[in-house]
Design a protein around this nucleic acid. Structure first.
Ligand SMILES: Nc1nc2c(ncn2[C@H]2C[C@H](O)[C@@H](COP(=O)(O)OP(=O)(O)OP(=O)(O)O)O2)c(=O)[nH]1
Ligand SMILES: [Mg+2]
Ligand SMILES: [Mg+2]
Ligand SMILES: [Zn+2]
Length: 573
DNA sequence: GCCGTTTTCGGCCCGACTGTTTTCAGTCG
């Protein structure tokens, strides 16, 4: 994942330049390639190092030409053609970031007004130089100024855990309106992507215009971007955009399919429809003017000869082929979860007591929980020394007698720089569950880090490898690790790979989950909760697991306590 | 530029909203 985002941006930039040159198909190909790479999950550099150009071309949507561009960048750190384009069109990339300015307008501004920067653009708008141009007017000049201001205010993508909370509040407000019947959170939220660009809502309404006006007048709305008879787009006080789409209930399934995406999945599905002699839009699947499907998503997929595809799988990464062959996985659900094996208490850096965590887990009807406070190296997080660890153990054994839920005594033990664990084996032997995690010395080489982690996994007391990539969304990338090797070790040793559901971690990634499953590795969804409230992030972890094509059998904490107990015992033999 | 259980050439998703149009192009989802 290291360079993927940066490379996707470069390809996107190139796509924009091709657009200016009216190379419309090249533009589409590059834009698509950018989307593919940004959603890839696997480090494109790693892919190239291991499989060469062939591995790049093997990606659906990347062919000889773009593979060459990628190769040039990975080998030399630059793309000659891009540099030339930047020279030809200075300042255009910035202009295109302004809401409402596309390639056509940008080009006019660039050539006729010689605009080279956002500063130039602002000045031109303020001096009313823009309104006179062909295709522009007073309003669009004003919009440009506002667009620049908004650009300066916009934050990036938001964490799923945060965005989902906001979306549920808006959903509740929408449900208040008498003309609104169904409300469905859609887009990337429904696909449970780990970061969210905007909040998308699909509704049915007996009075669409009133419903839309209600939406654009919500107290959270700070600005209305567009407002029509079937959809509206607004900016919310939380710094995110929200889109509303109103649809007749006979088109509900088609609209939900459309509004859930992702874009590439939609386009591929529509292409399939064409191939079969149909037309697919948000209004339905049509043969000529006859609607042959549209009330439910299932009906649409079925009419196209496909099994139903769960939203989390709609990423255009092979799901259509599997749907056609009826080989899609039966995804894990929240109901399958029997316990939580990673959480913290006031003994280290949590804010709830052991007893509070136990009671909260009972309320969730879990069969078991593991309390896993930090080890001594985590000084800032109040890591437990030997004496404290044994006291904590005593506390938990006492609490166990009081509650009818299996209370597992665990620890999140640091993996030290040399791969040794932060407690000696004789202490680890007294623990029921050990989550081993890297918390320090991130900047090792890939070889060293891989060796470090594999060494740790060889300790027979390790149950779970904690937050395996070490990424913190919006903050830092993961460390360099060879996951094929790590998965190999995990498989051999019988260690589970964690799917950490903390909103900022969401660690490990969806595509790595898919690879882990392909390699036969067990995974475990945990919340890493530091409060009782945070135990609720389990749903985010389940969403992430589903994005990784995980079935119940792939997830350790779907096991009953009896079966889990056996699993842990076997590991320690 | 990419792609192919009807194709290696000729297609490439489809529709809403807006401003500037005098019939629709541009932008966005
Ligand atoms: N058919 C089609 N559908 C699109 C297109 N663009 C967007 N959509 C659909 C699929 C998207 O998931 C949905 C919502 O659009 P968004 O721009 O909000 O994207 P999405 O929510 O997937 O990601 P986000 O996190 O908001 O960036 O609309 C398009 O060009 N064609
Ligand atoms: Mg969205
Ligand atoms: Mg949207
Ligand atoms: Zn933890």
């Amino acid at each position: 994942m290291s360079k993927n985002a940066a490379i996707a941006e470069l390809l996107e930039e190139m796509a924009n330049y091709y657009d200016l040159d009216e190379e419309i198909w090249k533009q589409r190909a590059y834009a698509k390639a950018a989307r593919i790479i940004s959603g890839l999950g696997q480090d494109i550099e790693e892919l190239y190092e291991q499989g060469g150009t062939k591995a790049l071309i093997a990606l659906q949507g990347i062919g000889k030409g773009i593979a060459e561009t990628l190769q040039e960048y990975l080998n030399t750190g630059k793309i000659k053609e891009l540099l030339a384009m930047r020279k030809k069109y200075p300042g255009i990339a910035d202009m295109l970031r302004v809401q409402g300015i596309g390639p056509k307008h940008a080009k006019v501004l660039h050539t006729t007004l010689k605009i080279r920067s956002l500063e130039d653009l602002k000045k031109a708008a303020k001096n009313h130089k823009i309104r006179a141009l062909q295709g522009f007017g007073e309003k669009s000049e004003q919009d440009i100024l506002e667009g620049i201001t908004l650009l300066e205010q916009t934050k990036g993508r938001q964490l799923l855990g945060v965005a989902l909370g906001y979306a549920r509040e808006i959903k509740a407000s929408l449900q208040q309106h008498p003309s609104i019947q169904k409300v469905q959170i859609s887009g990337s939220l429904r696909r449970r992507k780990e970061t969210i660009g905007d909040l998308d809502f699909l509704i049915t309404s007996t009075h669409p215009k009133e419903a839309i006006t209600y939406f654009t007048s919500l107290p959270e709305v700070t600005r209305v971007i567009t407002k029509g008879n079937s959809k509206a787009s607004v900016i919310l006080n939380i710094g995110m955009n929200a889109d509303l789409r109103v649809i007749d209930k006979k088109s509900w399934g088609a609209a939900l399919q459309y509004f859930t995406g992702n874009k590439d999945h939609n386009v591929a599905l529509r292409q399939l429809a064409i191939k079969k002699g149909y037309k697919l839009s948000e209004y339905g699947l049509f043969k000529g003017t006859l609607r042959i499907a549209g009330t439910s998503e299932k009906e649409i997929y079925a009419a196209l000869g496909l099994a139903y595809i769960e939203p989390e799988l709609r990423t255009h990464t092979g799901e259509l082929e599997h749907a056609k062959n009826n080989t899609l996985p039966t995804l894990i659900t929240q109901n399958d979860i029997k316990g939580d094996l990673h959480m913290h208490t006031t003994w280290s850096d949590g804010i709830a007591s052991s007893e509070e965590m136990i009671r909260a887990c009972m309320k969730k009807r879990y069969q078991y929980l593991a309390i896993t406070d930090h080890s001594p190296s985590q000084r800032l997080a109040n890591g437990l020394d030997k004496k404290q660890l044994l006291e904590h153990l005593k506390e938990l054994r006492t609490l166990q007698k009081k509650y009818n839920i299996q209370v597992l005594f665990g620890s999140e033990v640091d993996i030290l720089a040399d791969g040794q664990l932060d407690y000696p084996d004789e202490l680890l032997a007294q623990l029921d569950v050990v989550v081993a995690s890297v918390h320090t010395r991130f900047k090792m080489s890939k070889t060293e880090m891989t060796k470090r982690i594999c060494t740790a996994l060889q300790n027979k007391y390790v149950t779970i490898l904690g937050h395996p990539t070490g990424r913190l969304l919006k903050e830092r990338k993961g460390y360099d690790v060879d996951f094929d090797k790590v998965f190999d070790c995990a498989k051999k040793q019988g260690v589970a790979i964690e799917i950490n559901a903390q909103p900022q971690r969401m660690d490990i990634t969806d595509s790595l989950i898919r690879r882990a499953i392909a390699q036969g590795v067990m995974l475990c969804i945990t919340t890493d909760a530091h409060s009782t409230e945070q135990l609720n992030t389990m749903e985010l972890g389940v969403g992430l697991a589903r994005r990784g094509w995980a079935e119940k059998k792939n997830i350790l904490n779907t096991k009953t306590w009896k079966s889990l107990e056996k699993y842990i015992k076997r590991r320690r033999q």
